[in-house]
Each structure stands twice: as C-alpha cells, then as structure tokens.
Design a protein around this nucleic acid. Structure first.
Lengths: 214, 214, 214, 214
DNA sequence: CATGAATGAGAGTTCATTCAT
DNA sequence: AATGAATGAACTCTCATTCAT
C-alpha cells in the first residue's frame, strides 16, 4: 500500500509538465499570449503558480515549450508517405494535405500560428525555431511529393518551391482564418474546411498536371 | 498678421493626429501591440504622453484608428480597374494583384495584418470591421475580374469564390511572412516578392485558363 | 454703436468672476471638491480653462473664493435683528433661525459645509477662515439674542454659549443631512425642514424659558 | 515542528486585513479620502502596494471595508441598556450618550463621519449602508429610551422622533467639530467633550422633563 | 517538490497648470 | 483679456516572478 503512493505521486509529477502545457495551449490560443496570465495557466492545470515556475523558467519559455510540443513534435511525427505511396502524385498531395489538416490544422494547436506570426517580430528566436522545425520540414516533405510527380511525368516541370508554396498558402490561409476572422466572415467559413482544401487542390493540380502525351 | 498666428496653431493641431498615427503604426508594426508603450508613441510623434490622450481615448482606440487609416482607407481607395481594362483577364488579374502589392502589401501598414489576426479574439469589433471593410471589398473586386474572364471564355467556369481565395491566399501568405518569418527563412525571401507573386499567378492562371477552342 | 461694444465687453468681463464662482459652487456642491474638474467649471461658466486661471490662481483658491462669496458674505450681510426687535426673545430666536435657514441653509451654498468639514483637516487655513468668518459671527449674533432673553427675564440664566450651540446643532445637523444622507434616509426628510426647525426650537425654548414668576 | 511553520504564515495572512484596515483608517481620517495614496496605506501597514490589492480590490472597496469594520460593526455591538436599566430615564439618556461617546465618538473611527458626509454623493451605496446600519439603529435605540421616559411619566409626551434628533444633533455636531474645526475654534473645544454633552443634555432634559404632578 | 503570499517595477490614464498665440 | 493645446507629474492598478515555509 505504502509502496504504491510514491509511484502514483511520481506518475502525477511526471504528468505535470504535460498538464501545464495543455492548459497553456488552451489559454494562449483562446486569449492570446499577452492576455494569458500565468495564474490562469497554473489554475487550469490544477497547480499553484509557483509550481509552473518549477518547470518553466518564464512565460516565454512556457510558450516556446507549447510550440515545441504541439507544433514541432506533431510535424516531426508526420510520416512521410511519399516513399511507400504508389498511387498517382495528385492523390498523394491530396492525402498529404488532408492528413496534415486532420492532424494539425484542425487541432487546437493550430491556433498558435497566428500568435507566432504576430510575436515573431519581437521573438526572433521563436521565429527561427518555427522556421527550422515547422516550415522547413514541411517544405521538404511536400517538395519530395511534387518532385515525385514531375519525375513520374504526372506534373509539368514547374519550380518545385513554387508548387510547394502554392500548396501551403491555402492551408496557411485557412488556419489563420479559422482562428481569427472565421467568427466574423461568413463567405469563407460557410464551407467545410475539407471542401475548401479539396477545391483549392483542384485548381492547383489542374495547373500542375502535365498535358496527356499525344 | 494676427490672424496667421491661430492658423499656424490650428495647422499643428490638425497635423497631430496624423503624426500620432504614423508613430503608432511604426511602433505597432515594429514591436507589436502589447509591447508598444503609449509613452513611446507620444515620444516618437514628438509630443508628450498627455497629448496622445487628447486625440485618442485609449491605446485600443489608437490602434483602431491606425487600422482604419492605414488599412481600411487605403483599401477603400483601391480603384476597380476591371471596368476600364480591355486586355485579357489573366493580365487584369496580374495587374490587380501587383497593384495591390505595390500600394498595400509592400507598405508598412501591411504589418498590421498579423497583429489583427492575433488580436481579433480580443477585438471582435475590429475583426468584424476588418472583414467588412477589407476582406469583403477585396473579394468583390477580384470576383468581378474572375467572372469577367469566365464570361469572356478566357477562364474555365470554375467556382468564382474559390478562384478569388486562390488569388488571395498567396498574397496573404506573402504579407504574413514579410512581417514575421522573412528575416529567418531564406527559401522564400531570397526572391523578390513580385517574382513570387508572378510565379504563383502563373500556376493559378494555368489552372484557370480554358483550353483553346477547337 | 461702437461705443457700446466695449462697455458691454467690460460688463461681461466684470461678470466673469461671478460666473466662475457660480459654476464652481454648483459643481463643488454637486460632485465634491476632488471630483470637480477645473475643465468642467470653466465650461459651465462659458469660458476656457485658461481664463479660470486668470482669475483664480488654483483650484484651492477658487474653492476659497466660493466659500468666501457664498458663505462668508451671506453671513456678513446677515442683519442682526436683535437690536430693533421688540417682541419676546423666543420669537426673536425663531425669527433668526428661520431667516438663516431661508437665506443660507436652504440655499445651494450650504452644500459647501460638508465639504469644508471633510477637507478642513488638510486645509487648516480654510478651516480657520470658516471659523473666523462664519462660526464666530453666528455665535455672536445668536449669543446676543440669548443674552437679551436672559436679561429680560424670559430665559433662565443658562450658559449662553451652550444655548447658542444648542441652537446651532440642529441647524448644522439639518444642513449636513440635506446634502448627504437625505436621499437615503426617509425618517428625517419626510418632514419639511421648517417643521423640523420649529419642533427643535420648541424643545429648546421649553428648556430655556424661565418659569412664570409667582 | 514542521506543522507550525504554515500556521505562522496563516496567522500573518489572517492579520493582514486588520493591519491594512488600521492603516487605512488612520490615513483616511488624517488626510482624507482623495489625499490618501494606496501606496501610503500599504507602507503604513508594512506591506507592499501589491499586497493591498490582494485583499481589497480597489481603494473604494478598502474605504467601504474600513467603514464597515470601524463604524458599522461597532454600532452593531452597541448594547441597548434600556431594558435592564432601572434608574430614571434622564439618567438612562445620559448613560447612553456618554457610552456612545466613549466607545464611538471619541474613537479615531468617528473621523470617518465627515468623509462619509462629503462623499456620500459619489458613494450612494455607502450612504445607504450608513443610514441602514448606523443611523437607523441609533434612532431605534434612543427612541426606546425616550419612549420609556414618556411611558413612566418622567418626560412630557413629546414627539419621540424629535427628541431623538435633539439628542443626536449635539453629538453629531461634536463629532464633526472634533475632526474639522476643533484645532481652529477655541470657543467650543476649550471644554471637555463630556462637559459639552452634559450641558447639552441638561438643556434638553429640562425641556423634556414633565412638571411634577400636583 | 509544492505552495501561494508577497513583491515592485511598470503600465495606462488623468488632470491641474502653463504659455504661445 | 482670452484661448485651448500641450504638458508631465502623479495616481491607481496589474502581473510576472520570487522565496519562506
């Protein structure tokens, strides 16, 4: 009996950082970085304010940890389906975009993106971090898929970088709006995000697709 | 002679709001909303803190005024070139996008966009305002140009809304990056924004263009 | 025609201080000393803020001038009816109290009394002023009337000072309540002030009156 | 041993509000409401400014708490001696008045009365509170004592309310002067407050007392 | 490890007062 | 004499951070 208590404690202790990050994510996304009080984060995590500082040296560090956990790690986990996929490349791109949307874009964590955008001016370290761990890997992943399409003669030999950006832009646009203007603007949001993504992919793939060989 | 004195004063007074808005725009874009002190705005405008409050009731009101002056008004002035343009619609779209970029996107004021995105949760009034006066007019303007292309048989009969969003997304993406990640990310920014826009337009227009009638 | 303009101006100029005092009195009584803004006083008087300072060196000086004009002068004007009165002394006291009430107590200016009471702790100069010019003259005036009653055998040979204080206390009490608690307390204020004064005089005069000589 | 540590802390925490109220009372009475800085209150209580706001949400709330603690509670504790008193009613009134003076009037807290009077326009809630919890109970208490005297044939059948007001007025007058004009005016204050009260009671009781039955 | 009372620098805002016009 | 734009010291209140317990 007595031997179980410490183990339970340890388990709770080990869970602390996760609970704090979860609470911080919720509040940062909900109220913004400046408007979120460390008090509230601690309370929502069910610990005292002092405990928060036991795990994270400052509010900024906490924010960085949240970004790391909920954006970077998720991206890192993002399996590159390109190698083992054996359908056509248009289908691969559709799959990649929808998978990303399902796992990241539609998750609460995507609410961090507008914050990062707004704060990166005075948070260059964070911006670099985001570029290195989110932007670059995503570009590489999508880049390989586009290149595959070109290699296989499915796509025209376009500038790969541009095609990647053309894939990313609507996704980025969607994420930003979901967390900012969606509640105000009807025209965009009266459509399911998945539909929007599909239609944007339609347009783009139509531009990418190589004409049938005569 | 004596009548000139008050006029000079009046001129200074009349210029104050502009000077304050200019200073506020610079600092808001540079340091963010929360990190900008009313003190700094006043000092940069060359007046004392109290003077700022003579013209704007609060920091929030000042921010709203900045958005109104530098985003909304500029957008409102945006001429719709669609009516008088008589080239092909692809060229019209290129012109509209580049004009917008030259007049708004590349201006300091576009740095407000990330801030609005991040703060819209706490500024619902402002978000609505932004949607009504910036988003909606832009959509209408581009929508007409796309419709023109369809009507003239230059474009495929695509969903107009989708085409507009496909035009806006890369522009929005560019604006966000210019003010956030540009200093960190090389891949995108080692290219002139105009080049980026042109190449994105290439891709999109390729997807829009109707096949030559047999 | 031209000769009338300057005279009118002069008349207005001469009236300025009076208009400022009137406005100040209204606001001080209405909102209190601290809560009254010099701006409001000037605006209510129909002049600019700068003009106020042309006539009164500071807010405190303005307040003192208001007290002087509306309390001290009125008291000073208060005719001493004692000499020429030839009725009985009880009637004289009734007349004096009711006259005071009619001319001072019921006037807007009596609203200054609570303010003076509250501020005199950090305004010793004003307190002294009030004592010298309001309290003392009032005491002398009433004192003579009481002494007359004693001299004429109408009143018992009580301590004159005490009788005067017994006359003043209910009047003071009434003034304080009129301007403070009256809107909240019903028990006292559902009676006309004159009735209250009369009944208090009844009680006091009953205590003062000498028993009929056997 | 370890269990004592938190208890000591708790004791300090429990004492804080009292210490803050004590400090606030002193300063409010001494310097007035507007002239008292929250900084000063905190410093006098030996804590930092922030700590004050841990216990009281604003300066106004602090003031209300002071009034509640030092006026309302003291009044509420005021025992009604009327029931168990078996001397004559004149003696009872003397006892009640002198007891009140000793416990409330002569205490520092009575300095709040002028402030309440002056501020009640901006604190209607507080004024009502004061009327309900201070004025009304006092009237009831004194009213019963006066009625007793009438019932026992010791007093003339006067209007009870008027007699109560005649008892309160000199006490109120005394309190106001103690905290306002006393340092300036000699005529009243060169006499012990108790003497003043006794002499005022003399006059009043003389007016109240029923003539000996023939 | 955990707490939460305490801190105090710093923010936005107000307003009596000044002075160029 | 009159103006009213400008000032800036002073104020209340906040909140990230610390540390005794």
């Amino acid at each position: 009996m007595a031997s179980l208590a410490p183990r339970l404690r340890q388990r709770r202790k080990a869970a602390r950082p996760q609970e704090l990050l979860e609470a911080a994510l919720t509040l940062f996304v909900d109220k913004g970085l400046a408007a979120t009080r460390t008090d509230d984060v601690a309370r929502l995590a069910g610990v005292s304010k002092g405990t928060l500082y036991l795990y994270y040296a400052s509010k900024d560090e906490l924010f960085k940890a949240v970004v790391h956990t909920y954006l970077v790690q998720v991206i890192a986990e993002g399996t590159d389906l390109t190698e083992q996929f054996d359908g056509n490349s248009a289908a691969l791109l559709r799959l990649l975009v929808h998978t990303w949307w399902a796992r990241v874009g539609s998750a609460k964590a995507s609410g961090l993106v507008p914050i990062i955008m707004a704060e990166s001016a005075h948070f260059p370290e964070l911006a670099q971090f985001y570029v290195d761990h989110v932007i670059e890997p995503t570009h590489r992943l999508l880049g390989r898929a586009v290149q595959r399409g070109i290699d296989r003669g499915e796509f025209r030999p376009v500038d790969t970088r541009m095609a990647v950006l053309a894939l990313i832009a609507p996704v980025h646009f969607l994420v930003m709006h979901q967390h900012s203007l969606a509640p105000c603007a009807g025209s965009l949001t009266d459509m399911a995000p998945e539909t929007y993504l599909d239609m944007q992919l339609d347009l783009l793939l139509n531009g990418l697709t190589a004409p049938p060989r005569p």
